[in-house]
Design a protein around this nucleic acid. Sequence first.
RNA 1: GGCGACAUAGCCAAGUGGUAAGGCCGAGGUCUGCAAAACCUCUAUCCCCGGUCCGAUUCCGGGUGUCGCCUCCA
Length: 509
Amino acid sequence: MIKVFNTMSRTKEIFKPQKKGEVSIYCCGVTPYNAPHIGNARPFVIWDVIRRFFKKLGYKVHYVQNFTDVDDKIIKAANEAGVTWKEISEKNIAAYFKSMDALNVRRADIYPKVSETMDDIIAMIQGLVDKNFAYVLENSDVFYSVEQDKSYGKLSGRKLSDMMAGARVEVDERKRHPMDFALWKAAKPGEPYWDSPFGKGRPGWHIECSTMSLKFLGEKFDFHGGGSDLIFPHHENEIAQSQAYLGDENSFAQYWIHNGFITDGNEKLSKSNKEMVKRNKGFFTVEEVLAKYPGEVIRLLLLQTHYRNPLEFNETRVIEAQDFYGKLAKAYWQLDDLSRKIHAGEFIKDTGEKNFAITVSPAGGLVEEGERLLSNFYAAMSDDFNTALAITYMFELSKEVGNYYGEFKNGEILPVTIDGDIILRVREIYMEMAEIIGLFEQPVPVEEEEKQSEGNTELVKSLMNIILSLRQDARAAKNWSVADKIRDELKAAGITVEDTPQGATWKKI
RNA sequence: GGCGACAUAGCCAAGUGGUAAGGCCGAGGUCUGCAAAACCUCUAUCCCCGGUCCGAUUCCGGGUGUCGCCUCCA
């Protein structure tokens, strides 16, 4: 049983798919007019996890995400740069994909664009005009009439009479009601336009998402989501026009999922807040953040807070997430090492027959713990996609693995007594969690010994061998001051040396 | 003015009608020549005031504070 918090009812509801065994999702995509900041990326990472989760549960997932590639801001950016709207949007769409790839966000099944769905959009507007839910002005502007719609405001819980229309922006006097919103905008000189029965122009914001979701997912689909700032007016208007068009109050999306904001000093991340942009210079856009830290670390951080809660984002938090990630990665390598040894035949399966003094596998407790944590993991995910909790179960398993691995390395566990299948199962559990959260799909940073062989020349390696061997001589002679001096100076040079029971290891910081 | 969300330890962050996961930091310990790493232990009357209840941090009402939306916004 999966429970989801539905913005429409403001409660957690039990999820019942429209079609058995299938899930249809429409996630509001971006308007590609400039570089997205890290907050813009949150919903896509969240939906990516939700999608992975449903898929893992065996659902057939239909995932649609749009690009609003015809829009006022794009036109403005194009005019400023002296290029076409198409160039601006394509450039930013490419950048969007690059960032999403770095965050392990899998591609949607389809990415419809406004520019490629124009006929359907126009047909829908026409339908609304025909049904008297919209009216056409002399100059070709078309507006949706909110007063025709008795249930307008049901998602955001607003009444027309309560809103301060025009409080912050002057109301267009030609509208019948201040809250009426544009379905079609007449083209001004020099603006791109499409022909329509109403005149030359382009779609208003909102209508494109209605058209595209209905077109690709049908009249009734499961999920519609995006950031909380889309609740009003965007999603409210989508509901209004879609249900008016279909003449069915129960049509359109069944579950509305909205994520909280990413904040900086408790304030919503925003490109229009100039002071905030300045304050975060060089660490604000997704691209900038990804230039400095691995995508998987950022992804992990984004998922360590429940999706509906605000998430404070700053470099300190990223560093914390990086440490956390390092611990998860460590277990990944430990399991990797164990499974390699198993496959290499270094572990002999305990048959319980002669020659085996120990018949109880020490791995038994580990796999039991693993199964329990996996079950907890699924329970957390099933309760409104609680990735924050789910990740802690994965973390717990990583610690269990570390304990086991430590004993194994110290020779406290004899390989012959280990049931390889059990270790392999633990690894499977761990990777199953990782797959849903979306980790370890990029090269995982290696630990210690492995790190020595990465990116170092033979010369460096042999020099290090010489230095460490000299240091070992000093240690053997209990000449601690020389040994410590070598270690200190190497550290100053960017190399840390750690003494372990198996000898000294080193790595670049 | 309306609508909505949130308020949990120094910081981050889950969660529950029966005295609160986890992480970071900090303290103590084990191990180690030392250090590091690792492991163990410790650290919260859950914003305030009422109410319901045998019992509320968890439900209800009121307050305070923070944030968001009502214009573009993930």
